[in-house]
């Protein structure tokens, strides 16, 4: 169960009240993959933080099964600089699982993101993209019931991004856990979401069901159509595509 019921989050900035999230009601069915798309500053990151329980709503209610484990991939890698790659991936598992299970999960997660060879490297020795892949592996190793991702691929080069988008879809298809991914990339939203939620100034302004089989190709005409329509709505009716 993952639900937002009339949730708002306000911030006081220089005596003025800003609404990062404004009266959002949304249900994320168990086992679904949803993408949230919108411009920078539209409140999508705050929405994800509310889902993760990292930010308290100013009003409304976030409902989540307390037994559900949540994994989050942040915009930045947020690795512990004193731990090597394998220990960073193991970080959430230590003390929760026995040593053999931790090692197995770490290996599997590192294979998935293609970093098995760099398991002993320190974060300071990694490129930005590699660090982000470690962060993704850390969330995957938890095998969370709910996986929340905030622009997880934006720091990656196009090839790695494409590969990890595929990996995410594969994992989701294999495990059928709830996934919510925030992005400003409309193409990514269409490629990865069963459902795309469009956000603007803290509100949900549109919901699109993308009824296409996975894996999807960016060049598929149906994907291009969805992308064009969503973009057209978000930029206010002007179609920027040829």
């Amino acid at each position: 169960m993952l639900e937002l019921s009339d949730v708002s989050r306000h911030y006081q900035v220089a005596g003025r009240t800003l609404s990062a999230v404004d009266g959002v009601t949304e249900h994320f069915p168990a086992g679904s993959i949803t993408t949230i798309v919108g411009r920078s500053g539209c409140g999508k990151t705050t929405l994800l933080r509310l889902l993760a329980g990292l930010t308290e709503p100013s009003s409304g209610e976030v409902r989540r099964d307390p037994s559900d484990q949540v994994g989050v991939v942040f915009q930045e890698a947020r690795l512990m600089p004193w731990l090597d790659v394998a220990d960073n991936v193991a970080f959430p598992l230590i003390g929760r699982l026995d040593r053999g299970e931790v090692a197995a999960r770490v290996e599997e997660a590192l294979m998935l993101v293609g970093l098995a060879e760099t398991r002993r490297a320190l974060p300071v020795q990694l490129s930005g993209g590699m660090a982000q892949r470690v962060a993704i592996a850390r969330a995957l190793a938890q095998q969370p019931d709910i996986l929340l991702l905030d622009e997880p691929f934006s720091a990656l080069d196009a090839f790695t991004r494409r590969k990890l988008q595929r990996t995410l879809v594969d994992i989701w298809q294999a495990r059928r856990r709830t996934v919510v991914l925030v992005t400003h990339d409309v193409e990514e939203a269409v490629l990865l979401g069963e459902r795309v939620i469009e956000m603007e100034t803290g509100r949900v302004v549109g919901r699109v069901a993308i009824d296409l089989p996975f894996p999807r190709e960016a060049t598929d005409p149906a994907v291009v159509d969805h992308r064009r329509n969503i973009l057209a709505r978000l930029v206010g009716g002007t179609d920027p595509l040829p």
Binding site: A52, G53, L54, Q69, V70, G71, V72, F74, E76, R78, M80, F91, P92, R96, Q142
Partner: peptide
């Protein structure tokens, strides 16, 4: 504080 959030998420 961002690292502490990683800890909070890990429970």
């Amino acid at each position: 504080p961002k690292l502490i959030e990683v800890g909070r998420i890990a429970g």
